[in-house]
């Protein structure tokens, strides 16, 4: 009687393990963080891209406006891919684009913008990448949609046409 009980439990445990492994297989093992966080915008003080003046985050992000914060670098290849969508987004007046120049140097970055066009209203430079960590970013490119001092959506990796349509839907 006792041994039957134990074996029953054993079989049950293995069945549960089976189901869990089976389900686990379907999950991807690539880390995808929650993209709809309502987090406060972290404050930062960074040097402006064009000159050495200091830009304070509180002065950029005002209430009741949409902001699109985009981390980019001239050495990053996917950034070139998303650039055309950024240029399209620039045409929209109800959103302001903020460029976070990530671990870049001025010469390469400015020639990158000269070649492909400059979609940004403000560019700040994040020389050592620490400010991006404060935003919870993983790397380049990565973008955050900001409204009322909150991050309402984040995009990891280059944005595509669907993302662009989604943004345009939100800000309208």
């Amino acid at each position: 009687m006792k041994s039957k009980f134990i074996s029953l439990i054993l079989i049950l445990i293995f069945l549960i393990t089976f189901v869990i492994f089976f389900k686990g297989l379907k999950n991807s093992n690539i880390y995808t963080p929650d993209t709809n966080l309502k987090k406060e915008v972290p404050s930062f003080e960074l040097k402006s891209f064009e000159n050495d003046s200091i830009v304070i985050s509180e002065k950029i992000f005002k209430d009741n406006d949409y902001y699109f914060m985009n981390i980019w670098a001239s050495w990053c290849i996917p950034c070139k891919e998303e650039h055309e969508f950024l240029m399209k987004l620039k045409k929209d007046d109800s959103i302001e684009l903020i460029g976070f120049n990530y671990k870049d140097n001025y010469k390469n970055a400015s020639s990158f913008l000269k070649d492909l066009g400059n979609p940004y209203d403000i560019i700040v430079s994040d020389k050592d990448g620490t400010a991006s960590i404060e935003w919870g970013a993983y790397g380049v490119p990565e973008s955050f949609l900001v409204y009322q001092n909150k991050i309402i959506k984040r995009f990891i990796g280059p944005i595509n046409n669907e993302d662009l349509l989604e943004i345009q839907k939100i800000i309208r």
Binding site: G24, N27, N29
Partner: peptide, 18 residues
């Protein structure tokens, strides 16, 4: 099966895992 995140997951394929 690629169920784990590790240095060894060079080649994986859920179907084989199943």
């Amino acid at each position: 099966s690629g169920i784990l995140n590790s240095v060894h997951t060079f080649a994986n394929d859920p179907e084989r895992g199943l």
